[in-house]
């Protein structure tokens, strides 16, 4: 049930973001200067913002930005984490100690703060944002993967492969990685939820995407100065964030329940 709801929300939001140019009722940059702050109506489903731009169109375009950043960050972090975690877990010894010490250091660093600092210094841009979030994001993946590899390394089928003379990198890629897919997907799904929260938070502070790009965070921030007159400017992008994050959390948690359950059997 939870899995289906989570997957449904996520797929719908992915679809809406993908089809944004066709679904948008108006170019999000267009300003209707006669009717700023207009409340939701048949023409403008989510109303107009302080510049008279269509909030609905801005929200669905903003979803693309959030998803683009979150997916890039998670794929990049998971890739680096998978490589380093496998290397550490399978090699053991000095390599393991070096990689894990590095992971510990990165893990101890507050990720949100580092991303904030880097974007504050480099200036807001999609690439800066993604880079800054990846710099700390990989550590949790590396830890998880290392633990899993250490566990799998002792299993009989890996020992058999080793006894048959299979090369270490073949064992890791062909025999260990397929078995990591479940935990990796769970962590990635929950990671996307976290990345969306971070991205929107930084954009809310004006330290995420550039000001001209429509994003949920910056829309939410500009709307909060007009809460009394036009609460819809903040409300709809906020609800979009909550829905998408909730969807990914729901999907991730229900996948986790299945993965751990099937392992316990």
């Amino acid at each position: 049930m939870m899995l289906r709801w989570g997957a449904g929300i996520v797929l719908t939001m992915l679809l809406v973001s993908g089809l944004a140019p066709w679904l948008a009722t108006q170019d999000p940059q267009v300003m209707n200067l006669q009717s700023q702050y207009a409340p939701p109506s048949a023409d403008h489903w989510f109303g107009l913002d302080e510049n008279g731009s269509d909030v609905f169109s801005k929200v669905i375009y903003g979803g693309r930005v959030s998803l683009l950043v979150a997916l890039s960050v998670v794929f990049c972090s998971a890739g680096v984490g998978l490589l380093l975690g496998s290397l550490a877990g399978y090699s053991g010894g000095v390599v393991d100690r070096v990689v894990m010490r590095l992971t510990d250091i990165v893990y101890a660093f507050p990720g949100f703060l580092l991303a904030l600092a880097l974007v504050a210094m480099l200036g807001p841009a999609l690439s800066h944002l993604i880079l800054a979030m990846c710099l700390t994001g990989w550590a949790s993946f590396a830890r998880l993967i290392r633990g899993e590899v250490l566990h799998l390394k002792e299993s009989e089928y890996i020992q058999a492969a080793r006894a048959l003379g299979a090369l270490p990198h073949i064992i890791v890629v062909k025999h260990i990685w397929p078995n990591l897919l479940g935990v990796l997907l769970v962590q990635m799904t929950l990671g996307i939820a976290g990345a969306i929260v971070t991205e929107s938070g930084l954009s809310f502070l004006g330290l995420g995407v550039p000001p001209t790009t429509p994003s949920w965070g910056s829309l939410l921030n500009s709307g909060r100065h007009f809460l009394m007159e036009a609460p819809h400017i903040s409300l709809f992008p906020g609800l979009a964030i909550v829905l998408l994050v909730f969807g990914f959390n729901l999907l991730g948690e229900s996948m986790r329940a299945r993965v751990t359950h099937s392992r316990d059997l």
């Binding site: 929260v197 939410l220 809460l227 609460p231 909550v242 959390n249």
Partner: peptide, 18 residues
Amino acid sequence: SMLGMSLPAYFLGPLLIW
């Protein structure tokens, strides 16, 4: 609680103020 986890402070803050 799943919903609460998904409510970031920058949405809750303005919402509570409103």
